[in-house]
């Protein structure tokens, strides 16, 4: 019952945030959408049909990247859509999708009437950016296999699947809690007072604090769960990832939502890595491994193979 309520609340929160994110845009009433398509095209969608002759004229469009307002990009070709509602602007030079672009559309002509000019900001969806941070930390820049962090705990607790999953879940909870606290501390205390050199002490202190907090809360609320996961709590402090994530957040000046996504991705990525590794190591127990390789050496080689496989994700771009 509790869980269902929880899900409902979360769903409501997601819907509200979606409305907030998508609803905060002011646009000309006749331009309904303008978005990137690949590296060379921008697609403009109008609310109704526009005159093809007008749409084909390069002079009616002006576009520049937001940081370079003095440099107008040259549109090399305009392809009006067959339904007269869309216009495809083609640029022979690749456009940088990471920069928002400001698109000016002059004297929109529809049914022989002049509907005036408008300025549209073409940019990637912020939601997509958040999602790419999450997936980035989870798979593409997996902290264990591509950043080589948290290895002590990783090799220490990946012998059995049950241990691995327990450790992973505990780690994820503490990770999110401590990263959010660190973010708040960094933004509201360290940065305004120029105390950046205290970063390390403050972050490790917050990690210990959140471990202690989770420990106390778990002990009181759910002793059964504590019995299962309590032993891993101490190990969390010795994990580099838990310190690396706040440092990355501080370095990149992420906001609250981005920090949440990064820490969640990092925690989930660690869980994934532990799960994969433990599955293999359970099988390795039965295999005939040379004496010198027994134990950790073969585990390292297996981890290396996983890391090689994870290299395949690198360079993947979502959104």
């Amino acid at each position: 019952m509790k869980f269902i309520k929880c899900y409902k609340l979360m769903a409501v929160a997601v819907v509200i945030s979606l409305v907030l994110i998508s609803g905060c845009k002011n646009k000309h009433s006749y331009v309904s959408k303008a978005k990137f398509k690949g590296d060379h095209n921008i697609i403009i969608t109008f609310a109704g049909e526009v005159d093809t002759a007008w749409a084909k004229d390069v002079k009616n469009y002006g576009i520049y990247a937001k940081p370079d307002p003095d440099i107008q990009l040259t549109i090399s070709k305009i392809i009006p859509g067959s339904d007269k509602k869309t216009v495809d602007l083609y640029f022979s030079d690749a456009i940088d999708q990471n920069q928002p672009h400001i698109l000016t559309i002059k004297n929109i002509m529809a049914d022989g009437k002049n509907l005036g000019s408008t300025v549209v900001e073409v940019k990637k969806l912020y939601f997509g950016f958040l999602f790419s941070i999450l997936i980035g930390a989870f798979l593409i820049h997996n902290f264990v296999f591509t950043k080589y962090l948290g290895l002590c705990v990783f090799f220490g607790t990946s012998q059995k699947q049950s241990t691995a999953v327990g450790m992973g879940i505990t780690f994820m909870i503490v990770m999110v809690a401590s990263a959010m606290m660190s973010w708040a501390f960094y933004q509201f205390i360290l940065k305004p007072f120029h105390l950046n050199f205290l970063q390390i002490v403050v972050f490790i202190g917050l990690v210990s604090l959140s471990v202690q907090a989770v420990d106390t809360v778990l002990r009181k609320i759910n002793p059964a769960l504590f019995k299962a996961f309590g032993v891993y709590l101490v190990l969390v402090i010795a994990n580099c990832v838990i310190l690396a994530v706040p440092l990355i957040i501080a370095n990149n000046e992420y906001n609250a939502a981005e920090s949440f996504m990064l820490s969640l991705g990092a925690g989930a990525g660690f869980l994934l890595a532990l799960f994969l590794m433990s599955s293999v190591r359970e099988k390795l127990e039965l295999a005939n491994v040379p004496v010198t390789y027994r134990g950790l050496p073969i585990a390292f080689v297996v981890a290396g193979l996983f890391a090689l496989a994870f290299m395949g994700f690198s360079g993947m771009v979502i959104f």
Binding site: Y293, F300, V301, A303, A307
Partner: peptide, 13 residues
């Protein structure tokens, strides 16, 4: 970068 795992494994062995 990935060779780090192999290298440590081999040297440990």
């Amino acid at each position: 970068p990935v060779a780090g795992f192999f290298c440590v494994g081999f040297l440990m062995a």
